Amino acid sequence: MPAQKPTPPPTSASASDPHGFGGVSHGYAPDGPPSTPPPVPLEDIVRDLVDDAKQTVQAELALLEARGALASHGVKWASAWGFVAACALLVALLAVAFGAILVLAPHVGPLLATLIVVAALIGLAGFAGWRAKRSAGDVKLALRSDLSPQGSDD
């Protein structure tokens, strides 16, 4: 196939190009400045604005619904695994209590060994309850909207 040479633009001034620019517009349309588009009616602008706001609200509600579903899923599984952990801890504490009673029984007798283990477990439960109350107070403080210390809620 023979290669064709491009034809150069005309260099002479024609009737449609009085300045002799050879069809180059230099930023302007060859036939004058472009016509301005007609103004957009206010009703169309308001309708578009309302549609955009409606779509934004729908997207935000969908996001909140998705976040709620995710939180529900997380709470469900956290509570299920927490229940399993609590049951395992209860069984472990029972084993420790029975073991402690069996170890102490030959030295102090079965009744006193039982009372010692029960007192130790009640002391442990009291300490854990005190720490839980302090932690719950921290949560209440963190969730309070006014953080200025005007009085204690304890």
Score class of each variant (00 low, 15 high):
57 V>K: 00
57 V>Q: 01
58 Q>F: 05
59 A>W: 00
60 E>F: 01
61 L>S: 04
62 A>G: 01
62 A>E: 00
62 A>C: 01
63 L>W: 03
63 L>D: 15
63 L>E: 15
64 L>E: 08
64 L>R: 08
64 L>F: 03
64 L>C: 07
65 E>H: 01
65 E>I: 02
65 E>V: 01
65 E>T: 03
66 A>Q: 13
66 A>V: 06
66 A>H: 12
66 A>C: 04
66 A>T: 13
67 R>H: 09
67 R>K: 13
67 R>W: 06
67 R>L: 10
68 G>E: 08
68 G>D: 07
68 G>L: 10
69 A>E: 07
70 L>W: 04
70 L>E: 10
70 L>T: 04
71 A>E: 11
71 A>N: 12
71 A>T: 14
71 A>F: 10
72 S>Y: 05
72 S>W: 02
72 S>L: 11
73 H>D: 07
73 H>F: 07
73 H>K: 02
73 H>C: 03
73 H>Y: 03
74 G>Q: 11
74 G>F: 04
74 G>T: 07
74 G>N: 10
75 V>D: 12
76 K>T: 11
76 K>N: 09
77 W>H: 09
77 W>R: 10
77 W>S: 12
78 A>W: 01
79 S>V: 12
79 S>I: 09
80 A>S: 02
80 A>V: 07
81 W>L: 15
81 W>N: 15
81 W>P: 04
81 W>H: 15
83 F>W: 01
83 F>I: 09
83 F>C: 07
84 V>N: 02
85 A>M: 11
85 A>K: 09
86 A>H: 10
87 C>A: 11
88 A>W: 00
90 L>S: 09
90 L>D: 12
91 V>R: 05
91 V>L: 12
92 A>H: 04
92 A>Y: 03
93 L>T: 05
93 L>N: 12
94 L>D: 15
94 L>I: 15
95 A>D: 06
96 V>E: 13
97 A>H: 08
97 A>C: 07
98 F>D: 09
98 F>C: 09
98 F>N: 12
99 G>S: 09
99 G>H: 02
99 G>I: 08
100 A>P: 00
101 I>V: 15
101 I>T: 08
102 L>S: 08
103 V>N: 01
103 V>M: 08
103 V>T: 10
104 L>D: 02
104 L>C: 03
104 L>H: 02
105 A>N: 07
105 A>V: 11
106 P>D: 14
106 P>I: 15
106 P>T: 14
107 H>F: 09
107 H>E: 10
108 V>L: 06
109 G>D: 03
110 P>K: 12
111 L>G: 11
111 L>H: 12
112 L>F: 05
112 L>G: 00
112 L>Y: 07
112 L>E: 13
112 L>T: 14
113 A>Y: 10
114 T>D: 02
114 T>A: 12
114 T>N: 04
115 L>H: 05
116 I>D: 01
116 I>A: 06
116 I>V: 14
117 V>I: 14
119 A>C: 07
119 A>T: 13
120 A>D: 13
120 A>C: 14
121 L>W: 12
121 L>G: 09
122 I>E: 08
122 I>N: 03
123 G>Q: 11
123 G>Y: 14
124 L>V: 08
126 G>T: 08
127 F>L: 10
127 F>P: 00
127 F>A: 06
127 F>E: 03
